[in-house]
C-alpha cells in the first residue's frame, strides 16, 4: 500500500511540475463556464444539469490527454524498467496511477464549485442534486481514466495513446445516439445500456442508482484489468 502511495505522490508531482495540469485546469474551467452560461440562458433553470452533462463529454476528449503518458511515456523513457525491477507490485503501480489522475480530476471538479456557488447566491438550487451530479461526474472520471490507462499501455507513443483513448471511449458516448436510430428493440436497449450518458442520467436527477454504480465499477475495473493484462503481456514480447 505504501508503494501505491509513493506512486500516487510521484504522479501528482509530475502533473503539477509540468504545465500540463495548469493548462488543463484553465481549459476545463473555461469550458465549464461556457457550459454553465449556456445552460442557464437556454433553460432558465437554476441547475447544473447542462453544465455537468457537457462536462462529462468534455472529459471523454480531455482525460485521455492526462492518462496518455502513464505507460507510453514510462516505457519510452525506460522508467517502466525501474518500476518492473523495483519491488513494486503491478497492482500498486496501476492503482497509484489511476488514483493520481482521479485526484487531479477531483481538483478540476472542485474548481467548478464556483458555479453552484453562483446558483446558491442568486437562486435556490437543489443541493442534493448538485451533490449527486458531482458524484456522477467523478464516477465518469474514474471510468475514463481507467480506459485511458489501458490505451496508454498499448503503445509507446503518448500522442497515439491519447488518440486511442478517445477512440476507445467514443462508442460509449455515441451508442446513446445510435440507439435512437435503430428499430430493433433489443438492440436499442443494448446500445442504450452501453452509453455512459444513460448511467449518469439518474445522478443528474438526484438519484444514486445502484445499477449505475455497478456499471461504472464494472467499466473501471474492467479496463484496469485489461491494463494489467496488457502491461504484463508486453513483457513477453
Amino acid at each position: 500500500m505504501s508503494v501505491a502511495w509513493a506512486i500516487f505522490k510521484k504522479e501528482l508531482r509530475i502533473y503539477f511540475v509540468s504545465p500540463l495540469a495548469y493548462v488543463f485546469l484553465g481549459v476545463f474551467l473555461l469550458l465549464s463556464g461556457l457550459f454553465f452560461y449556456l445552460g442557464i440562458t437556454m433553460t432558465g433553470e437554476a441547475s447544473l444539469r447542462v453544465m455537468l452533462g457537457n462536462l462529462s463529454i468534455a472529459f471523454l476528449f480531455l482525460l485521455p490527454l492526462l492518462t496518455m503518458r502513464h505507460f507510453a511515456e514510462e516505457r519510452r523513457s525506460g522508467t517502466l524498467e525501474l518500476m518492473m525491477t523495483a519491488p513494486v507490485p503491478l497492482w500498486a503501480l496501476l492503482f497509484g496511477k489511476w488514483a493520481a489522475t482521479l485526484a487531479l480530476c477531483l481538483a478540476l471538479l472542485l474548481g467548478t464549485l464556483l458555479f453552484p456557488g453562483i446558483l446558491l447566491y442568486y437562486g435556490d438550487p437543489d443541493m442534493g442534486v448538485v451533490l449527486t451530479s458531482y458524484l456522477g461526474l467523478l464516477l465518469v472520471c474514474g471510468a475514463f481514466v481507467s480506459a485511458g490507462m489501458f490505451s496508454s499501455s498499448l503503445t509507446d507513443e503518448p500522442v497515439a495513446a491519447g488518440l486511442l483513448g478517445v477512440i476507445i471511449l467514443l462508442p460509449f458516448w455515441v451508442a446513446g445516439s445510435a440507439a435512437d436510430m435503430v428499430s430493433a428493440d433489443w438492440l436499442r436497449r443494448a446500445l442504450r445500456h452501453l452509453s455512459f450518458l444513460t448511467h449518469i442520467e439518474p445522478f443528474s436527477k438526484g438519484v444514486v442508482d445502484t445499477g449505475a454504480l455497478a456499471w461504472f465499477a464494472l467499466f473501471t475495473f474492467g479496463f484496469l484489468f485489461l491494463t494489467w493484462r496488457s502491461v504484463e503481456s508486453r513483457r513477453w514480447r
Binding site: 510521484k10 508531482r13 509530475i14 511540475v17 509540468s18 523513457s77 525506460g78 522508467t79 517502466l80 524498467e81 525501474l82 525491477t85 519491488p87
Partner: peptide, 16 residues
C-alpha cells in the same frame, strides 16, 4: 529487493 539495476539509459523522470 536484492538487485540494483542500471539500464543502458538511466530510468529517470525528466520533470522531477
Amino acid at each position: 529487493r536484492k538487485v540494483g539495476y542500471l539500464p543502458e539509459t538511466p530510468p529517470l523522470y525528466r520533470e522531477l
